[in-house]
Nucleic acid binder design. Sequence first.
DNA 1: AGCACGCCGACT
DNA 2: GTCGGCGTGCTC
Length: 616
Amino acid sequence: MYYYKLSIIGSPLEPFTYHSSKILQRGAEVSVEFNKRIKRTVVLETCIKPEFDTSEIIEVHEEYYSEKQFALAQFISSYYICSLGDVLALMTPFSTSVSDENSVDWECGKQFSIELSRKQNQALNFLKQHKVSLLFGDTGSGKTEVYMKYFEEILAMGKRALFLMPEISLTPQMSERLKVHFGDLFVIWHSKLTPLQKKKALQKIYSGEAKIIAGARSCLFLPVKNLGLIVVDEEHDESYKSSSRPRYNARDIAIYMGKLYDIPVALGSATPSLSSYVKFPHARLKGGHFVSQKEFVYEKAPESLTPLIENSLRETLEKEEQSIVFLPTRANFKYLVCGDCGHAFKCAFCSVGMSLHQHSRALKCHYCNFTQAIPQVCPQCQSSHLVSSRLGTAEAVKNIQEFLPHARIEQFDRDTITTANKLKKALKRFNDKESDILVGTQMLSKGHDYHDVTLAVVLGMDNMLNMGDYRAREKALSSLIQVAGRSGRAKDAHVIVQTFNEDFFKSYIENYELFLEDEKVFREELYPPFKKLCRILFAHKNGAKAQEAMREMEANLRAFSNVEIVGAKKCAIEKVANKYRFEILLRADKSTDIIKAVKTSKVALAEVDMDPIEFG
DNA sequence: AGCACGCCGACT
DNA sequence: GTCGGCGTGCTC
C-alpha cells in the first residue's frame, strides 16, 4: 500500500493522507471521500503510513497538474499565504487523454504582414534581450504591433504565447485585431465565457492548435505546453489584482512564471506603474501616430458642471462634433476639499487623503485610523466653503441633458454597460454618430477607439488625486492621460481638466517619466515598491468575533520587530454582505519578513491580502 | 470552508 | 409536539 498527502481542491485546509495500491505521481488528480462527500484532490507527495487509519483513494483521473503548475501553485500558496488547495482551484489541469502530437505546427513559409517602424523594431529587440522588460509606449505609439511581431517570432520558433489584457471581455477591439491577424491560432480565455465556449477554447489549447492565448488573470493557469513568451498589456491596470482569495496579482505571477519557465516576460503600458518602472528596464516608444493637436484647459473648481464646461459641450455639439465626459472612478468615500483653493486634508502620518465620515463627524485616515474633527474653515485660505460633493454618472447625464435637451447623451459605466454586447452597441452608436456625448467612468478610457472626439471633459480630478490611497497621484495622472488619449485622434481637440492642482497635472501630463522620478521620492519612506505592505482582513457576521480575531492576531504580530503594524481597526466599509469587517495593515522592508510574521501569527478568521491595492 | 450535530425559542 | 435559528467542532 502507498500513502499520499492530498490537497483538496478549493479547500483552505491542510493536506490529508489517503492510501492506494497504485503508484501515483505528484500532481495527479484523484477523488476521495472526505467528510462523507466526494472531493477532487491533488497528489502532493508520498509519505509513510500514518498513526491514524486512512481511507482509500477512489479514482485516479485523467487530469494532472504539471510540475511547473505545481511549483507555481506552491509559490502562490506561500507568497499569498493560503492553502495549496485554494491555488489549485484556480488552475486548469492537463489531461492524459488528449495529446497535441498531431497539432499542426506553424507553417514556416507563411508570411505575416506586420511591418515595424525602426523605433518599433528597436523596442522589440530590447524586449527580446531582457528576461523581464517594460514597453513604455504612449497611446497610439504602436505597442500592439510590437507585441504582434513578437508573437509571430514566437510562433516561428514553434512556441506559444500568453497575452494578458485587463477587462478582455470589455475590450473587443484588441481581440478582433488579433483574431483577424492570427486566425485559428488565436484563442480568448476569460471567466465570462460560457461553458461551451470554455470547452471549445480548452479543446484548442489541449490539441495545441491555439498558439496565442489571450485572456485575463486566469489564462496564466491554463494547460499550455511549450510556452515561449508572456505579454502583460496595460500592466498598471488594477484588475490584474484578484479581489478574492488567493489575492494574487497576475502581473507579478507572470513575472514569476517567466523565471520558472525561463521565458521572457514583456510588460506594456503608456502609464507604467512605479513598481514596474523601478524594477525593470524599459524601452520607450514616444508619440502617437495622430497628427492632431490637443490643448489642455485647466479649471479651478470642485466637481461640478460649470459654465465653462456647459459652453464647451454646447459648442462642440453645435459643430456636430463629439464629447466624452469623464468622472473619476466612483470612490466609496467622500473627501473634504476647500471649494475656494482646493486644499485637501491629508493624514500627517501616512500622507494620504483623509476621508469624510459624516456619521461620526470626523476625518479619518484609512491606513492608520488617525482621526480629526471636521474642520470648519480651510487652514490654507480661511474659507468656510468646504465641499465634499460627488457627482454620479447618472446625475451628470441628467444635468447635461437639461441644458442640452437635443443632445444624444449616453451613460457609459458599469451600471449601464453590463455585457460585452451592450458595450459593442454603445461604441458602435457613438462611432456611427448616433450619439453625441458619452458620460462615464474608467470604462470610457479602457482602450476603446473613438474616431472623432474633439472634447474631453475630466471632472473633479481632485477627488482622485486626494484619495486615501498611496497610489492616488499615480491613479489620477494615469487616468487623465488615458482619457486624454481617447480624444483628438482625427481632429484637434480640447481637454478640460477640472482641478485645483493645475501645476501637478501640467508638469507631468506630457512627461510621465518625470512624474515617476518624483513619485519615487514620495514613496521611498513609506510605500511600495520601496516598502512592502500587507493587509489582513477579518470578516464575521458577529462584529465582536471579527474584532477579537483581529486583536489576537495583532498581539501575535507584536513579536515581530521587523514588521510594523500601521493600523489595526474597523474597515472603512464596516459591513459587507452582512459581515462586520476589521483589518490590520502591515509594513516591512522585505516581503519575507511579512510572510514569516503573518504565517506564524495567523488566526482562523484572517484573510491575507499581500501587496494590497485597495483599502477599505 | 462546508456540514453535521445539538441545543433553545416560536409556531401549525 | 417539531421546525429552524446558529454556535461548536471535525474532516485522513
